[in-house]
Design a protein around this nucleic acid. Structure first.
Lengths: 216, 216
DNA sequence: ACCGTACTCGTACGTTGTACGATGCCGCAA
DNA sequence: TTGCGGCATCGTACAACGTACGAGTACGGT
């Protein structure tokens, strides 16, 4: 049932995931669901834990940095596959089993990697904030794959220009010169590789953490 | 009207912000709202832009690092004041005026600070991912002020132990030793200062960015 | 006196989550 | 065989939601 719900969310979007639709998909009456789940929120919780279970656990057979790097990249992949889950992964109330397992593994990886408890918490916090924040940015992107990126970028640029016209603010560049510089001069030309951008920031953070390992 | 909507969201939570309730609060009929706003989503967009307008714009009279530091801290404050807005700030469709202004100011601050276009984009992305990700973590916290933190932490610990009992997994420490170490050994004892944790990670990122400024 | 425009709202419809109670099903004791 | 208690299913109903539709009021200009 949870699996079906996740599949439905992936297919039609989370906002159109309805108790009735899910029941239909399962060939059951709508109320049948409530025998297995007390309410829709708990259903969401269950779905979230499935997402957690898809994230690759960090292993201890490599150094902490590559382990953390892998799980970060895995997390981004999974969150990109289930964009609806971004923003629901952090309800501290009644965390699922997969969630607990992952948290424990990450913490273990950091502790065994030589971080003190305090530093491990900080390191975890920084990484997760970055990962989830990045996923949040990607969440509402108007495209799914990297290939569509360029096409959409062009359209964005055109809409941006129209916006400027709408407001009769004359040249867009006058009001928001730096924004114009980026939109017209760079993004539209080069496109944007989110995976690369993610790893750039990730490595930046991991390197900075490595330097703090041992202190405090 | 937007102001009232924001106030209502702050008071009763965003999920209970209803067209009818908002209209009542304004002493108007429900349908009156639709004269000023085409639908609820656009109302949300308007509310989000109000939130953007509360973020302090970075200035160019100080070095880029302190300017970015200030706007990051301001953003966290604002996002903490309007937790409902986290997760809605990044709809790239029809950004509001305040949003454009902020983006332009940040970009300008980085460009004038000596970042190339490519690096400025990366730097912006890393910072915002971290800021919004951190805000996301704070969003569903069961308490508002730092004072409640300690009390809730105790309760969390107790619930955690109960959870372990529920699942008959014997000692929690057996299954999730590192998690137990953190929950029992550190958080419950020291509590957790989110503002300090935020600034720790923020400075870590800013320092790493400074070192990359100039390259590429 | 007339009209266009700005604004307000009562009613109504479709969709949602879910409370309630009636079913059918099945293994087991009398 | 009969009955009974749990497990599992679902039809109906209701309140709350977003909002389409169209009628209402007020008013400034002609």
């Amino acid at each position: 049932m949870l699996q079906t719900a996740v599949a439905l969310a992936a297919r039609d979007g989370i906002e159109s995931l309805t108790m009735r639709k899910l029941a239909d998909e399962l060939g059951a009456g709508a109320m049948t669901l409530y025998y297995y789940v007390p309410n829709k929120d708990e259903l969401l919780d269950g779905m979230v834990d499935i997402v957690f279970s898809e994230i690759a656990l960090p292993t201890t057979d490599v150094d902490w940095r590559t382990a953390m790097r892998r799980r970060a990249i895995s997390t981004r992949e999974v969150l990109n596959r289930h964009r609806w889950a971004v923003g629901l992964m952090d309800s501290p109330a009644t965390p699922g089993l997969a969630s607990l397992r992952l948290h424990d593994a990450v913490l273990g990886c950091l502790r065994e990697g030589g971080f003190s408890i305090e530093l491990a918490i900080q390191a975890y916090s920084v990484q997760d904030a970055y990962i989830y924040g990045f996923a949040l940015q990607e969440k509402n992107l108007p495209f799914e794959s990297a290939e569509e990126s360029a096409a959409v970028a062009e359209e964005q640029t055109r809409e941006f220009a129209e916006l400027a016209d709408d407001r009769q603010m004359g040249a867009l560049a006058d009001e928001f010169p730096y924004l114009a510089e980026v939109v017209a001069g760079h993004v539209a030309k080069v496109g944007y590789d989110f995976a690369a951008a993610f790893e750039y920031g990730l490595d930046l953070i991991l390197e900075a953490l490595e330097k703090r390992r041992g202190t405090a």
